[in-house]
Each structure stands twice: as C-alpha cells, then as structure tokens.
Design a protein around this nucleic acid. Structure first.
Length: 896
DNA sequence: AGGCCGTACTG
DNA sequence: CAGTAC
DNA sequence: GCCT
C-alpha cells in the first residue's frame, strides 16, 4: 500500500512537471501520435506474423522439391550471371522476379511502393510534423513490407533528403526504420516493464516479490490490481532438474531447510563456515553417488530410479506417460546428461522403460533430433513408420517444454515442430484430436475435467511465464515466497551456487582454518585471468609474418563455413592468433609455439612450416576467388557468411553486382544501408573523431535530462587508437523518482498523458536526427519508446563532410551499470572468457549482470529452466571480485 | 568425445 | 526460426 | 581449431 501510493505520488509530480513543458496543442499531437503508433504497430505485427507464417510454410514445401546443392563452386560463374537477362538492364529498383517466380508478388511491389511512399511521406509531412513528430504514421498499412515505414522514418527521411533527393530513388531508398511493435502489446511486456517511477533501493528490498510493478492508476480511479499481478509465480512453473542431482538419497538432511529457518542473526562468517563443512560432506557423498551411478547401465539406472526417489514426491506433469529414451551412448555406462534426463522425466511422473514394449510405451524420447536409426534399432523395426502411430516420437526438448508449460504438449497446440521427429504427416491433422482426447482420458482418470476441456493454446500462454529475477541491489537476497511450491528448489539452487563462491572467499579470508581452503575451487586457465595480457599487443608483433599466414587460413575457413565445426575452427584460429600476437618474442620452434595457450599441434606444425619455408602449402591449394568475394560481401553490414555464400553461388562477384540486384537478390533495409556506405563503414575512425561524436551526443542527452549517466564504451574505452564504432551507454539514477524510460502501457491507458510515454532514447534519437548527427537507423529496439532497457543501432557522422560511422546507443536500468559496462567494453575474447568462467562456476554472466542459481537444461545448456537471481552488477569491480578475476582496467582487457 | 558466451532484432 | 550483430 |  505505502509503496504503491508513494510511487503514485511521485509519478503525479512527474506528470505535472512534464505537462508544464508541453503546450496543449503539442500534447494533443503527441497523444495522437502515440495512439496511432501503438495501433499501427500492433496491426503491422499481426500482419507480419501472418505473412511470415505463410512464407515459411511455402518455403518448406519448396525446399522439399528443390535440390539442396549450393556448395562452393570455384568457377562456372559466368553462366549463372547471364541467367536472368532482363533484370540486369532493367531499371534498378524494379526487381526481377526470382527465377521460377515462386514467391508471392509482394517483393517487387513492396519495393516500389515503399519508394513512392517515401516521396509522399517526406513531402506531405508538414514541417512542424517533421520537427516534433517523428512518431507519425501516415502510411496506410496496406502491405507488410511497405508498412515498415514508421517512427523515426520521418526524421531519418529528412536527413536523407538533404544528402540525396528522392528523385533518385535507387540511390536513396527509404530508410526503413524498423521500429517494431513496442512491448506494449504483450501482457508480459507491460508487466516486466519497469515503471516510470522505479522503486527506490529501499522500496525494492521491501518487496520480495518479483520486480517493481508499474504504479497502476496513479490517481484515484478504479485501479485494477487484479489481472496484472496474477502472474507473480505460476503455481507450478517448472521443477528442479538440478535438485535431483544433489539429492543423493543417502544424504537425507536438507540443509536448505535450516538455511531458510535461520535468517541472519549469527554472524555471516559463522554461517559460512558451518555451511562449508556441511557442504563438503554433501559434496563427498554426492561425488560417490555420481561415481556409482555412472557405472550403471541404462537399464540398471532406470531400475534404480524408484529407489533413488523413494523419499520424494513426484510431480504429475508427465504422469501416465511411458517413455523410451533414445541415446547414442555405450550401453554399459550412463553419462551425466542421460542420468539427468532420466531424473527429470522420472521426477515429473513419467514411467521409463529400458526396452521397447509397444504395448506399454506411449512416447519415444530421442536425446537429439535425427536419431532415426537408433530409434528404429531400439524399437526393433525397419523404418520409423513401423512404429505404431499411437506412440509419439519426440526429441528431448519436448520434455523440457512440457515441464515448463506444465502440461503435455502436442503437435496441435505447439508449433514447435522441431520437437517432433518426422513422422507421416497424416496423423497430425485428422486423427490427432480424437486420439489425443482419448489418450488424455485414459491417462488422466483422476484429475479430469479441467485439463481435458481446456484449450491448450490458451492455457499455454497463461502458464508460460517464468519467475522474474529480482533486480534489486545485489546485496539484497529476496526470500522466496512462503507458499511457493518452488521455494525449496530456489533455495537449493542458491545454496549450490554459493558453494561455488565460498571457496574463493575462503582464499581471501585469512582466518579460516587452513585446511582445504584452496581446494579445487580456484578455476583457472581462463584468458580473463591473465593480467597484463595486453602489454605486448600495442607494438608491432614480432611474429607478424606467421600471424598473417594464419589469418589467411582462418579467412578461408571462415568463408567456407560448411558446417558448425568450421565455426569453431575459426574461433580456434582466432584464439591461436591472439596468443601469437601477445607473445613478445620471436617464435623459433614448434615446441615453443605449442606451449602457448590456444596453440595446439596442428597450428604449431603450420607455424613450423612457415618458419622454415616461409610459406604454407595449404594456403596455395585452398585459396580461391570465392574467399575474396565472400569477404567482400560480408563487408556489407548485415551480410554474413550465409548470405555471402548464397550470392556467390548465384554468380555475383562484385559490389556492383549486388547494387544491380543481379540474379534477383533482395536486400534488407540494413543491408541496403550497409551497401550504400560500404566504404565509410569499413573504415575505422580515429579515436579523436569518436570522442567528438560522443561529446555531441552526450551534450544533447544532457540537455534533455542533466541527471543522466552517460559513458562511451567499446574500443574507445579500451583506448584503442582507432575505433570501429561508437558505443554509448546511458542510464539514470532513479533516486529522485524519475527514470530515463517512458511510460508503460498501464500508464498509457490510465492517464491521458501520452506525451510522457516517449522514453529518453526516443527523444534523444529525435534530436540527433534533427541535428544531422544520426543519418540512418539500422534497428531500434522494441523498448525504445518506453522501456528502461533499450538498444539503438544506427549510423551517424560528425558533420556533413565526414564519413558515416556506426553508432550504438544503449539505455539500461541503473542497477545494471556494471554488467553493461563490462560487457560492452569487451573485448570479444575477454568477454567470452569471463563468461565461460562464470558459467563454469555455476553463474551466468550477461549484459545485465552476474546471475547465480541459474539452472540449465542438462541437454541444451542454452536453455535456462531457471533464470537465477541477480548476484552482482552494480559495478564492474563487483563482478570481477565475484568471479575471482583480478581487476583490470578497460585497456588491460585486450586479448585479441 | 563433447564443449566452445549469452542475448536481441529482423524478416 | 535462421541469420546477423554486439 | 583447441581444451579437458
């Protein structure tokens, strides 16, 4: 009550102040803009989804008919170049239909209409509108592509006009700013979105529930606290997968309980020590347990499950299912992953069998896609079609999907078809529903009505929401909800995460009884731990010739990129090269090279060859013009290896080919911009210029709100002599009740003050466009209009005479300053390294901060079953300390 | 043999 | 979802 | 590619 009302009061004051700055007329205009903006955005999004869906389906069917082919062809370009004859001479912006004309007509017409609309837009807009009203959407929303014109469009358009008149449309295509739908249209968006009035530090800690809630109706009227806050924590969101692992049946005592019961009174140190001994005992037991388990066969482990979980209640999500799990492992042992999968399935109520029994098995779960052979083998059938239709075949992600949705997913309700192994398409449409119903009836005799009657798709959206990480000051640990069924799980996760740190802290604490303090804790071997790694970088490298050759080789692999492993090969090369660059003395022998971190056998052999012969055979044999062309194409912003190869395969060889849209290629808005300023954007700018542009932007931002915190990051912050782009980070201390965000949806609907809805970033962009500092936009994050966290990516320049430069602007919640700074300062290798270390220590590091207690899907580590809890993020140093990484100034973080 | 950073926008 | 970027 |  008190917090809400105080926030409301603060917000009221904020409104009053804001109102004073606006004339009635201006406000009315802004309100219109905003309303219109929201409507259009929602409509457009709907259309886009629809279109996209259609297109995807179409493409799918096409793909089947067409041969894959498209490998790297060294020559034979000329023939394909001449293939679409008409197009080459045709006026540039008339796009030739793709060969075969499979696509709907939209592309061509879209390109044209958007051009013409561009003209209309820019001329029809009254000067006043252009000036203070970039949100205006004049374009009718008739076709998906053209309706891209929006938001900043007007502003960027004006800027573009200056440089090249619309009469040459081929040179100045519209700046298709993609100011996509604001998060407003998602329930979720509105909720997670921080309020204009962010809770103060104190109030944040006072509420242990989720994040700040936007002050509902700031004034009196009927506040509707009902629907919004429903979601705090879905009753049974997901379950502790990890829990099982630590649950060694032998270790009965649940340390979590005591931890929960005894909050703070005893000194921190005492608790830590007590926990440490407990933890050690636990760990020993756990390890022994793991050891035993790993020696079991799959069959044995499955048989052992009931015993392992004898003392625990099982969840019911998967109740009634009988799973056969398909894996690729040696039958005599079980891997950790498989065991975790078994655990998870069992814990959620599934029965598991080791051998296929068509009478019993209801689902076949494959640990990964495409294990058709293994599946057939396990089921003792010839083809996958011989498996009775009633038995569903899914891949593992389906299981985690079911668990987080808390229901059995079906192909009908879940369009994630990837979760399903390809089976004859018939059952899906026709027989599926009745059968599903029938099945459901059978397996849910007990908990009946509610489940079977529900519309799954709808139910899904209700339940999906996960727990929201507490974004408070990192020192505050929110207590889990008393009646939250997952409380104990969170507690467990937290406890385990602390294990990871406490060891490190021991090292720092002199008083702890010597003993096992420095156990295995000190994780090492991470690039980020090496202090002074940058020192040998600045000067010209003594191994430059070697590096050159290896870089060549890397580029070749980069260009080829036929499969996933090529990607990692490139990363491997990059690391080796970085190590070589850092090495201060001339490499003399292969052994010497091999000692470097990141340089292995293969590379040291190559190095040896270079040293002795001065060249690399491999370079000569592998090199072809494809590599050069791919490199050329990839220089275009937003063109990556895939597109570059596509174009090459289509016969394109030069940028002019691209400009002329040979072979009917189409460019995205960003690619078009990237192409237009190809030369500018591929050139690094002198450090001084970056500083100047930063200064100009900072000035304008401070004009809007003097209390902003603004910092330049990236290579500038690392003190590089030249900068590839300009990264600017903006935040604002919410201590006075204001933030840099705009109003959230609920405010928009409960007040009539739409003008306040424009977040700082939006306002700033407007100004920068007006002043000609920003000239084009590449992408603007959804939250730019309203959210605390938003990212802008675009192009700008110091003045009309200088080159165009990449500019990124980021706004973030104040408490994430450290995490964001760390991340956007880099460099790349340092980031990877420090994140890897975090992950190995049981944390997760991202641009928002360091999280602990993150639970990942044992199968797919990128899937988080629990997003964890913010652990440190206020300052960079806080994060370094938590990870045991020695402090390094930004310019000391250079690794590549 | 299995990893290799983690997240967001576009279309 | 794939591709791209940071 | 490299590393565990």
């Amino acid at each position: 009550m008190s917090r809400e009302s105080r926030e409301a009061r603060i917000y009221q004051r904020f409104l009053v102040e804001e109102r004073e700055r606006y004339s009635d007329e201006a406000r009315a205009q802004d309100e219109d803009d905003m309303r219109e903006w929201i409507e259009k955005a929602e409509k457009r999004k709907a259309i886009m989804y629809e279109e996209h869906d259609k297109r995807r389906k179409k493409r799918k069917t096409e793909a089947i008919n067409e041969s894959p082919a498209a490998t790297f062809l060294p020559e034979a370009s000329s023939s394909s170049l001449t293939q679409p004859p008409a197009s080459l001479s045709a006026p540039v912006h008339v796009e030739p239909a793709p060969p075969g004309g499979k696509r709907p007509s939209s592309p061509d017409s879209a390109a044209q209409t958007s051009h013409s609309r561009y003209a209309v837009n820019s001329s029809a807009r009254s000067p006043r509108l252009i000036k203070r009203m970039p949100m205006r959407m004049t374009a009718p929303d008739d076709d998906a592509t053209a309706s891209d014109t929006r938001a900043l469009d007007a502003v960027s358009a004006t800027a573009t006009i200056a440089s090249s008149p619309p009469s040459a449309p081929d040179l100045t295509p519209p700046t298709a700013v993609q100011l996509a739908t604001p998060p407003l249209d998602k329930e979720k968006g509105a909720d997670t979105e921080p309020a204009v009035v962010a809770p103060t530090v104190a109030s944040a800690s006072a509420s242990n529930v989720a994040t700040s809630t936007p002050p509902d109706a700031p004034s009196t009227s009927a506040p509707s606290p009902t629907k919004k806050k429903k979601r705090e924590l879905p009753p049974t969101f997901l379950s502790p997968p990890k829990a099982s692992s630590s649950k060694s049946a032998t270790v009965a005592a649940r340390p979590t309980k005591s931890a929960k019961g005894a909050p703070k009174p005893p000194t921190k140190r005492e608790i830590q020590r007590a926990e440490k001994t407990k933890k050690e005992a636990r760990e020993a037991a756990k390890k022994a347990q793991e050891e035993r388990e790993s020696r079991m066969t799959h069959q044995e482990y499955i048989a052992y499950l009931p015993q392992k979980y004898a003392t625990r209640n099982r969840k019911s999500v998967l109740q009634g299912c009988v799973f056969l799990y398909i894996h690729q492992e040696n039958k005599m042992r079980t891997s950790v992953q498989s065991r975790r999968c078994y655990d998870l399935m069992w814990e959620h109520g599934a029965e598991i069998v080791a051998e296929f029994d068509p009478e019993r098995v209801t689902h076949i779960i494959s640990c990964k896609p495409k294990l058709v052979n293994q599946t057939c083998q396990a089921c003792n059938v010839k083809t996958i079609h011989d498996i009775p239709e009633r038995i569903k075949t899914f891949i593992w992600t389906w299981v985690t999907g079911c668990i987080s949705a808390n229901r059995i997913l079906t192909a009908a309700s879940d369009d994630n078809y990837k979760s399903f192994i390809d089976r004859p398409p018939i059952p899906e449409s026709k027989k599926f529903n009745p059968r599903r119903h029938e099945e459901r009836m059978r397996r849910n005799e007990h908990d009946s009505a509610e489940e079977s009657s529900e519309d799954e798709a709808v139910a899904d959206s209700k339940q999906k929401t996960g727990p929201i990480p507490v974004a408070g000051p990192s020192t505050v640990v929110a207590a889990p909800e008393k009646d939250d069924p997952l409380a104990e799980f969170y507690e467990q996760a937290r406890y385990e995460a602390e294990d990871a740190v406490s060891g490190d802290e021991d090292d720092a604490e002199p008083d702890v009884d010597a003993g096992p303090s420095s156990k295995a804790k000190a994780l090492k071997g991470f690039q980020c731990d090496i202090v002074g790694a940058h020192l040998s970088i600045g000067s010209e490298c003594v191994n430059e010739d070697i590096v050159r050759k290896l870089e060549e080789l890397m580029k070749i692999h980069d260009a080829r990129r036929e499969n996933e492993s090529d990607k990692f090969r490139v990363i491997g090369y990059r690391k080796a090269i970085a190590a070589l660059r850092r090495h201060p003395t001339r490499i003399q022998t292969a052994e010497e090279a091999g000692k470097l971190q990141g340089v292995g056998n293969k590379t040291s052999e190559k190095i040896m060859e270079i040293i002795s012969t001065g060249g690399l055979e491999r370079l000569k044999t592998e090199r072809n013009d494809g590599v050069d062309v791919m490199e050329l194409f990839r220089g275009i912003y937003s063109v990556g290896s895939t597109v570059a190869r596509q174009w090459y395969t289509l016969g394109l060889r030069t940028l002019d080919d691209v400009r002329e849209r040979k072979a009917g290629i189409r460019l995205s808005a960003a690619q078009e911009i990237g192409l237009r300023y190809y030369d500018d954007l591929n050139q690094r700018m002198p450090r001084a210029e970056a500083g100047e542009i930063y200064g100009m932007i900072k000035q304008r931002a401070l004009d809007l709100d003097p209390k902003l915190d603004i910092e330049i990051m990236g290579s500038y912050r690392r003190r590089k002599e030249t900068c590839g782009d300009i990264d600017i980070l903006i935040t604002r201390d919410p201590c006075d009740g204001k933030t840099h965000a705009g109003a959230s949806r609920c405010l928009l609907h409960t007040t009539s003050s739409y003008h306040t809805c424009l977040g700082l970033l939006m306002k700033l962009l407007r100004v920068l466009h007006q002043d000609g500092i920003l000239t084009e936009d590449l992408s603007v994050s959804h939250g730019a209009g309203t959210a605390l966290e938003a990212k802008y990516m675009g192009i700008g320049r110091r003045d009309a005479t200088s080159k165009r430069r990449r500019i990124d602007i980021l706004t973030i919640p104040h408490e994430q300053w450290g995490g964001a700074l760390l991340y956007f300062t880099g460099d790349d290798i340092f980031n990877r390294s420090i994140r890897l270390k975090a992950s190995k220590m049981g944390y997760s590091l991202n641009q928002r901060g360091l999280y602990k207690g993150v639970i990942r899907d044992p199968r797919d580590r990128t899937v988080k079953l629990d997003s964890g809890e913010l652990f440190a993020s206020r300052t960079e140093r806080e994060i370094f300390d938590a990870l045991g990484v020695p402090w390094q100034e930004p310019w000391e973080r250079v690794r590549g």
